[in-house]
């Protein structure tokens, strides 16, 4: 394609947008709203994922042994657990260590209160493994496995926490998916309307082009371009705006709810944008292209 042809198509594409500026603005705004919401849901979903994953690492299973079990067997059990793919890490805690931790947690500085147990560790049989998972969904399976091992007395698990985190994640995921799909459909519809108005306005010109010998692609290219430009602008504006809003909101939440900053931290905006940026732009351009493609196909049988 000659540079003059490319230049012509570019000029026509922008001209179309200018001619129907009200429709163009409506399309861009809808697309912008759509991509903005998409960004919000994306940020929430990825952060919830990130936070639950962190939480998963902090919700270990505790494995206790039968009374008087030999250290060799305990080690064997440890090796068997560690070999499971869903196990992230495993830490051994002896009865003495468990007692020290208990004392610290419950008696604190009041060490005298614990003195009554000085020579008689009540947790002597509390040697245990702290097992962290890399996938919380596998927890019931792993617990069943560990319970089946010989020498295991009891397995403590935070099942409730696991289930709650998991269901929160999937609710957010499905709700946002449905909303985003609906909004994208509306955007595609509006862009297709805008392009269709452009085609009607330029029907005479299109007729002349056909008689003169313009190829189909030459006639269609400015309309495709129009859809792509509308989609790209509609995506770029909210993506830019959300970048700053995200940083502000994340900072605000952490400042306002001080207690959160101890257990929660948000993914930094540049990291989120490594994925959100390209996906958002691709969505905008893709929806713009689909919107114009369907209309041009329907109205421009050239």
């Amino acid at each position: 394609m000659r540079p003059s042809t490319i230049w012509y198509i570019l000029r026509q594409g922008f001209k179309n947008i200018r001619r129907n500026w009200m429709f163009s603005v409506a399309s861009v705004l809808t697309m912008a709203a759509c991509i903005f919401l998409f960004s919000i849901f994306y940020a929430i979903t990825t952060n919830v994922n990130y936070i639950t994953r962190k939480a998963e690492e902090k919700v270990p299973i505790t494995v206790f042994f039968d009374e008087g079990l030999s250290e060799e067997r305990m080690q064997e059990i440890g090796e068997l657990i560690e070999a499971r793919p869903e196990v992230e890490s495993i830490v051994f805690e002896s009865g003495d260590e468990a007692w020290e931790k208990f004392k610290e947690t419950y008696f604190g500085d009041d060490s005298e209160a614990a003195d009554g147990f000085r020579d008689d560790n009540p947790l002597v049989n509390s040697s245990n493994y702290q097992v962290s998972l890399n996938n919380l969904e596998k927890q019931p399976e792993l617990v069943a496995y560990i319970e089946s091992l010989e020498g295991v007395r009891n397995v403590n698990q935070a099942e409730q926490a696991a289930e709650t985190l998991d269901s929160v994640r999937s609710v957010i995921y499905y709700v946002s998916l449905v909303i985003i799909v609906i909004l994208l459909l509306i955007s595609a519809f509006l862009i297709s309307n805008t392009v269709s108005v452009g085609i009607t306005v330029r029907s005479e010109e299109i007729g002349i082009m056909k008689y003169i010998g313009a190829t189909d692609s030459f006639v269609r290219a400015p309309f495709f371009l129009e859809g792509v430009i509308l989609g790209a602008i509609g995506a770029a504006i909210p993506l830019g705006a959300f970048y700053f809003i995200y940083n502000e909101v994340a900072g605000y939440i952490l400042r306002t709810y001080n207690v959160l900053s101890l257990s929660v931290d948000f993914i930094p905006a540049p990291v989120i944008y490594r994925t959100l940026g390209p996906i958002g732009l691709a969505l905008g351009i893709g929806v713009g292209l689909i919107g114009s493609l369907t209309t041009v196909r329907k109205h421009l049988r050239v």
Binding site: E205, K210, I212, G213
Partner: peptide, 17 residues
């Protein structure tokens, strides 16, 4: 399209832009 380039067309209503 290529074929029509061999023809020049003139209409009653001029059809100018």
């Amino acid at each position: 399209a290529k074929y029509r380039r061999k023809l020049g067309v003139v209409f009653q209503d001029f059809r100018l832009l």
